[in-house]
């Protein structure tokens, strides 16, 4: 640029940098409103408390009835399965086996199945 006065080029270039920087900061502020949204959605969707509660209900059931199958224990089991489906939209099943010797203790093998269409959970636990 032989014949042209180019003193202003640096000013224009710095102006561009500042403008881009400001837009970048605005973008960060704009996105900050979203913080925690996907986390909260994930927590709301994942039935952590439901599964924990179901496990405790099954343990209570074993405390009460052991692994016996009679009309009373069958009725409680049907309660849990039917109410889960109706009110929690979850297909639930569980079964309790004969006690086994686990490290010197007699524990019941319990299988628990849970499926609410989004989250599926299967467990075999000795209790």
């Amino acid at each position: 640029m032989a014949c042209m006065n180019e003193d202003g080029q640096w000013i224009v270039l710095m102006g561009l940098l500042v403008a881009v920087g400001l837009f970048f900061l605005a973008l960060i502020i704009n996105q900050s409103a979203l913080v925690g949204q996907t986390t909260a959605e994930g927590v709301l969707e994942f039935p952590k408390n439901d599964i924990r509660d179901l496990r405790e209900a099954v343990f209570d059931y074993v405390d009460e009835f052991d692994h016996e199958e009679d009309t009373e224990s069958k009725a409680v089991r049907d309660d849990i399965i039917a109410i889960s489906l109706e009110r929690k939209n979850a297909v639930v099943d569980f079964s309790v086996g004969d006690p086994e010797d686990i490290s010197g203790r007699d524990l019941h093998p319990i299988t628990i199945h849970y499926n609410n269409g989004v989250t599926e959970y299967h467990e075999t636990v000795y209790y």
């Binding site: 837009f23 605005a26 973008l27 704009n30 409103a33 979203l34 913080v35 925690g36 949204q37 986390t39 909260a40 959605e41 927590v43 709301l44």
Partner: peptide, 19 residues
């Protein structure tokens, strides 16, 4: 920025206190 501003606030508003 203009386009991405429109849908933000309600979603962030409700989910976090609900959770």
């Amino acid at each position: 920025i203009v386009v991405s501003t429109t849908s933000v606030y309600t979603a962030g508003d409700t989910h976090i206190p609900d959770m």
